[in-house]
């Protein structure tokens, strides 16, 4: 499969307080980021139901990133604790389902870590490009 850069889609869920600000920072710092990225902002990473990620795959994402504040830094105190637990469920589910584990990633990124955000997206895009398009994509584009 392989596929060229523009075909791959990476979906990132970013929390409002840390990782979204981080992504914003990456932009402000004019860091080069692949055009594969689609960001969905949520108020807290604790809001991210694993189903959202699965829906992302079904809708045509080739990779899904879940990002939030570092453990202990959550704006809502324990939101990202839940994220961590649920992400483990999601990881096992995706693996058992038959998708490559590399298509899924959890990262804690603070508001100041724009460079890390850009780096993570780049890495993820490279990994997913190697794997090709997600087999869960529909046979036709909607």
């Amino acid at each position: 499969m392989g596929g060229n850069m523009t075909d791959i889609k990476i979906l990132a869920f970013c929390c409002n307080w840390c990782s979204y600000a981080g992504a914003d920072g990456a932009g402000l710092e004019r860091r080069q980021m692949p055009a594969t990225l689609r960001i969905i902002r949520v108020m807290c990473s604790g809001r991210i139901d694993p189903i959202f990620a699965l829906m992302g795959f079904l809708e045509g994402a080739d990779g899904v990133m879940v990002t939030g504040c570092h453990i202990g830094d959550c704006h809502y105190i324990d939101g990202n604790y839940k994220t961590k637990n649920r992400y483990e469920f999601l990881k096992e589910l995706v693996d058992e389902l038959g998708l490559e584990p590399e298509r899924l990633r959890l990262e804690w990124i603070s508001a100041t870590e724009g460079s890390i955000f850009a780096q993570v997206v780049k890495e993820m895009t490279e990994q997913v490009e190697k794997l090709g398009k997600s087999p869960l994509r529909r046979g036709f584009e909607r």
Binding site: P50, I51, L54, E59, F89, L90, L93, L97, L136, R137
Partner: peptide, 14 residues
């Protein structure tokens, strides 16, 4: 939606 696996089943699996 025409998903490859119905969301119903995925939610239940999770």
């Amino acid at each position: 939606a025409g998903y490859k696996i119905p969301l119903y089943n995925l939610v239940r699996l999770l």
